[in-house]
Write a protein that binds this DNA or RNA. Sequence first.
DNA 1: GAGATTCATGAAACCGTTTACATTCCCAGC
DNA 2: GCTGGGAATGTAAACGGTTTCATGAATCTC
Lengths: 349, 349
Amino acid sequence: MATIRDVAREAGVSIATVSRVFNNSSLVSEDTAKRVMQVAARFDYWPNSAAQSLTTNRSNTLGVLLPDLFGEFYSEVIRGIDSLARRESYQIMLSSSHADNEEILMAARSMLGRIDGLLMMAPDDASADTVSRIQRRIPLVLLNPATDSPQNCSVSIDNYSGAREAVNHLLKLGHLRIAMVAGPQGNVDANERLRGFTQALSEAGHDPRDAIVVQGDFREPSGFSAGIELMNHVPRPTAVFVANDSMAVGLLAALESLGVEVPGDLAVVGFDDVDIARYLRPPLTTVHIDAFTLGQRAAQMMVSQIQSPEKKASHSIKLPAVLKIRRSCGAQPNWKVTERDKKSIIAKK
Amino acid sequence: MATIRDVAREAGVSIATVSRVFNNSSLVSEDTAKRVMQVAARFDYWPNSAAQSLTTNRSNTLGVLLPDLFGEFYSEVIRGIDSLARRESYQIMLSSSHADNEEILMAARSMLGRIDGLLMMAPDDASADTVSRIQRRIPLVLLNPATDSPQNCSVSIDNYSGAREAVNHLLKLGHLRIAMVAGPQGNVDANERLRGFTQALSEAGHDPRDAIVVQGDFREPSGFSAGIELMNHVPRPTAVFVANDSMAVGLLAALESLGVEVPGDLAVVGFDDVDIARYLRPPLTTVHIDAFTLGQRAAQMMVSQIQSPEKKASHSIKLPAVLKIRRSCGAQPNWKVTERDKKSIIAKK
DNA sequence: GAGATTCATGAAACCGTTTACATTCCCAGC
DNA sequence: GCTGGGAATGTAAACGGTTTCATGAATCTC
């Protein structure tokens, strides 16, 4: 394929001039520019962006490192990042499924020179050393970090407050025996949600140590068995806060097949507000988190950091997680057929 | 940051030697290698991959061009691509939301030199010219192309057969008035699904021109209004094939609020088998498509094309779309609490 | 012990750009 | 007619690696 030299030779100019034409430099006469463009079009010349990156030290690319890709959450994060990246004409380089620090470093290494900044959601045990080794050479924004260390930029979701709000809601509804299905131990989100649960109970004058906490792993089957376990408990809880929606789905399935009424016999609140939450029976009351915005804000932070590195205001953003009240906790419905439609249909029946 | 030159100087060798050490060349003595590695570790030297790409003409990166990023389908495609890419140690460079040929070309251009191959899902009007301009310089695999032109590699989903199977199923259940909610005109998938519908009816001796076909746009609200429209139709259909699950969700909501029984009054079959399909009431019978495999196979094709360009066997794969029978068409349930659990719970009630 | 062979290493070209600096040309100003 | 300056363009040095080829030392062969 044609390189800048081919174009230069054919147009009878130096490669510097061709480069200038392609970079819209004003220092080139209109005639020459036109001639160069014509030759370039004829050759269908595309500049090699690896070479450009090398000289300019800019790639217009954002690296994205995620622990996994499965499920709505990550795909929304990516979509959020992409939406901002597109707006600012950045590309995205994606890498996922990093189990340990070694793999994270490998991935970051292989991106070096090809990205202008890195957005990283580390697995739960990302060491400070890993972070600092990366940060020394590439601007870094952390997504949902375990600890909000002040020396780096980060965007995270306020799991703690979200959980607290959810449990407060149940308390306000009059529940006295509130159980929790917790997430996997060691997981940052799971810990924070548990902390919110505990805190809400304490504030209400309960002793959190009395509360039933069933250990889950964030996945549907563990919610199913948690449901069975809870129903075997004496005395039974009257409400349960489930650390994520996947487990809530499993739990609801268990309750249904056991003939337990929701919310009548047991009020249920989830966390995440996944797509299916509103389609469940009953529609699941849950804590909404906005993964799209998480990604978008992180990308925004990155881009402004790249474009003005002088103001190294390494700040952290915490996005709210807000309770979405539906039916599974005891609340009102809403549907959307107009009365006119309804009559018209019934008439024809 | 340290470059190869810094390491070479400090280790007292030439840059060629350092390069050899990092590429595991056997042509370097153990002593030297160890010394170089030590210096590299001390400097925390990371090779610049842009420079590597430039010289080797290899980037170990796959470009991915998608029209959009929203929803399960695309995220599963990406996950499939990623799973194979990881296994083969490739990175992924992602770009989305390309409305027209101009944007596709821009995206491809900006990847030139940084990717070894491109996986592209073109919007419906991708011109052959666009494809060939890209293909001239980068190995290309098309995802779900509009036409299976034999001169390029592609992986697609057999929408036609899937739709045909779905409608055949409804016919076999004895339905005589089968309607369809179609997808947006001009959309490849929508067209193929409509074609399958028509074909199945013809084969069964019906005149497809008599069938009610309501135009939709693949989104939930259009399914809702399609539901209302269908119920207003005289005579009413007894079954409906909906061109995707999103619309089927809207349709079911409409039916529910109208008091129409599913499958009793109207049998419903969707397409896509999205996550929520099995959580709907009734669980939605639908045609399952495997976006993960779509991405994975495409990536596989790409990698083998890169690694052995000589066998330019530009073949096309068509993945099956298989009917997943649930309740919305009239079929049997299945739940999963053991009898023992059930008894144990009931005893304590 | 001389010539052949192997092995480790270095020198330098190259990949395709950008860009600092040099050069040329033209023209206004005195 | 000379000078100075600015506009258009060219020259060549980067950027950070890989790789070909040359070189020299050590080992082998007979």
